[in-house]
């Protein structure tokens, strides 16, 4: 097992945002976390990343307790979050953004260059834009950059928070294809947090449904996508 979140309670100030949330990610698996706005999806991600304090419960990553660790320490262990809203470094070029993605890894100049080439092969658009400031890219391009920047550090687990938010449907399709490729070709397990439940259920193996800070359903994505309550609540049935 790569990641094991056991019964965590998280708070924003005095407001409890998560109630005993548990989830697991196994090797080479794509796991989806779906739920409506404010259900606690991003809070779950932020709790895993150490950005929101966890009051009780534990988070284990590859057998190591990371519950109380700081964000940069967790990132160095190999969990990379691609945050909601991309969060690229707007004043830096695409190339510089990619270089910063490998900040926590010691690489020689050639190794770094090869890694960047690898990303350009995965996202040819980024090669064309290499010298442009990231702030001047389109939303889809920024999302590609955010994913590529995340992959730069050879993550052991990738977490994508709302990757489809604000993107055109065509680009969303491309994006999800990329995730499938990353998962298949590089063998990296991925957590996808989405309001776009249809897409998330399609590409994931297993799925967790969050409501008001509780996990209300979980299991095989294929089965869940045929479940009546899920269809009613999230698939517009």
């Amino acid at each position: 097992m790569i990641l094991k979140v056991s019964g965590i309670d998280s708070y924003y100030g005095n407001v409890q945002a998560l109630h005993g949330v548990s989830l697991e990610v196994n090797e080479k698996e794509i796991v989806a976390v779906i739920g409506s706005n404010g259900a606690g999806k991003s809070t779950t991600m932020n709790s895993i990343m150490g950005a929101v304090p966890v009051k009780s419960g534990t988070i284990e990553f590859m057998g190591k307790d990371i519950t109380k660790m700081k964000t940069h320490e967790i990132s160095r262990l190999g969990i990379i979050e691609i945050p909601e809203g991309r969060e690229v470094f707007p004043g830096m070029t695409v190339l510089e953004n990619l270089e910063m993605g490998s900040y926590s890894i010691k690489r020689s100049r050639t190794e770094l260059k090869n890694k960047i080439e690898e990303m350009y092969d995965l996202f040819p658009r980024l090669r064309e834009r290499a010298k442009q400031r990231a702030g001047s890219l389109s939303g889809g391009e920024q999302q590609m950059l955010a994913v590529a920047r995340g992959l730069m550090s050879d993550p052991k687990l990738l977490m994508c928070d709302e990757p489809s938010l604000g993107l055109a449907p065509v680009i969303v399709d491309d994006m999800f294809d990329i995730f499938i490729r990353v998962n298949k070709e590089l063998g990296i397990p991925i957590i996808i947090v989405e309001q776009n439940a249809y897409m998330a259920l399609q590409i994931s193996k297993r799925c967790y449904v969050l409501e008001n800070g509780y996990v209300t359903a979980s299991g095989d994505s294929e089965k869940l996508s045929k479940d009546d309550t899920i269809i009613k609540a999230y698939l517009g049935g």
Partner: peptide, 24 residues
């Protein structure tokens, strides 16, 4: 320099900088 670039990252986006493994 790596340190200098990390400082620019912190300046532009603290959240993303921490996610890159930069100690803010």
């Amino acid at each position: 320099t790596k340190t200098g670039k990390a400082m620019r990252c912190v300046e532009q986006n603290k959240k993303a900088a921490a996610l890159m493994g930069i100690n803010i």
